[in-house]
């Protein structure tokens, strides 16, 4: 069933001179088993929005329904919500703290009240999902490389077996291969577990490569909510919002301007190559 967001607003410092409207009447549905990209410039409200989804922030007005139940309702099980809707913050490796990797990953499930052995088996399952080498289970989290630390931190949230996984800039600061690894992993996990993934990202190229649906935030509102090719048709508007289109889309638009009649609804290198080759006869080479 997923999450239904019904006309929510969120105000920081409500009732003071510093009051800021971070979310401004958002209504949106997040069904099961979807890969969603959430983009928007710094300060557009993305982080606030995702924190309302698992009840870390309580909305100022409006309602959020999880599987049909109001998450602010009296009888609602919030603990369950927090394990069902997993949130991986930016630079999650800063939150690793235990003596070794596996104990760190066990922390969440143990907090849910699971037995030691059950917590452990969930931790192992999560570590396998993020392709952590067995030899590192007993290593101190602080001895891992940047990419490994990040995978360990993601495993910590996965061990809660979330149905919806929200990742806030999971690739920030990683090298190109590290980026591909983490995103590939997320795509694979989604397939395996039929989870809904919400990927918050500043990289239009990453988003273009993986997601089925993009939500664009600006000024606390969701301005576009559609499949990627349709969203990236609004290049001008996205740029005005401090965003951009994928690099490849710009290439195709330029070719079109220069008179080559290519389809500009193209986001990835392989598709672009195919599209250009289909117009081979019009080329000057």
């Amino acid at each position: 069933m997923g999450i239904k967001v019904d006309d929510i607003c969120f105000l920081y410092e409500r009732g003071t001179a510093m009051q800021v409207r971070a979310l401004d009447h958002i209504s949106v549905e997040i069904p099961d088993d979807q890969f969603i990209g959430l983009i928007g410039h710094t300060g557009s409200g993305k982080s606030t929005f995702v924190q309302t989804l698992n009840g870390l922030l309580k909305v100022t007005s409006g309602h959020i329904y999880y599987n049909g139940e109001d998450i602010d309702g009296e009888k609602f099980d919030r603990k369950k919500l927090r394990s069902d809707v997993g949130l991986v913050f930016q630079y999650p490796e800063h939150q690793l703290f235990e003596v070794d990797v596996i104990t760190d990953v066990c922390f969440g499930p143990k907090n849910l009240g699971l037995s030691e052995s059950e917590a452990r088996s969930r931790a192992i399952e999560a570590l396998e999902s993020v392709k952590m080498s067995k030899s590192l289970y007993k290593a101190s989290p602080f001895d891992l490389s940047g990419g490994e630390k990040r995978r360990a931190a993601i495993a910590g949230v996965l061990a809660m077996r979330p149905k919806i996984l929200i990742l806030d800039e999971p690739t920030a600061g990683l090298d190109p291969r590290g980026r591909d690894e983490i995103l590939g992993l997320i795509a694979e996990m989604k397939k395996e577990r039929n989870m809904t993934i919400i990927l918050v990202s500043h990289s239009m190229d990453d988003v273009a490569r993986y997601v089925d649906r993009i939500m664009v935030m600006g000024g606390g509102k969701i301005l576009y909510d559609d499949e990627p090719v349709k969203v990236f048709r609004h290049v001008k508007e996205l740029e005005d919002l401090g965003l951009a289109a994928p690099q490849i889309t710009y290439v195709m638009k330029l070719l079109k301007e220069r008179g080559l009649d290519v389809n500009t609804d193209v986001l990835r290198v392989k598709e672009a190559a195919a599209e250009i080759l289909a117009h081979r006869r019009e080329l000057h080479v």
């Binding site: 090298d175 190109p176 291969r177 590290g178 190229d205 994928p246 690099q247 490849i248 290439v251 290198v269 392989k270 672009a272 190559a273 250009i276 080759l277 081979r280 080329l283 080479v285």
Partner: peptide, 21 residues
Amino acid sequence: QLDVPQVTLLGHELRKAGLAI
């Protein structure tokens, strides 16, 4: 473990497909 700009990669693909660029 690095990459090249996307447009460079596209050029590379087109060359592999036989375009004389």
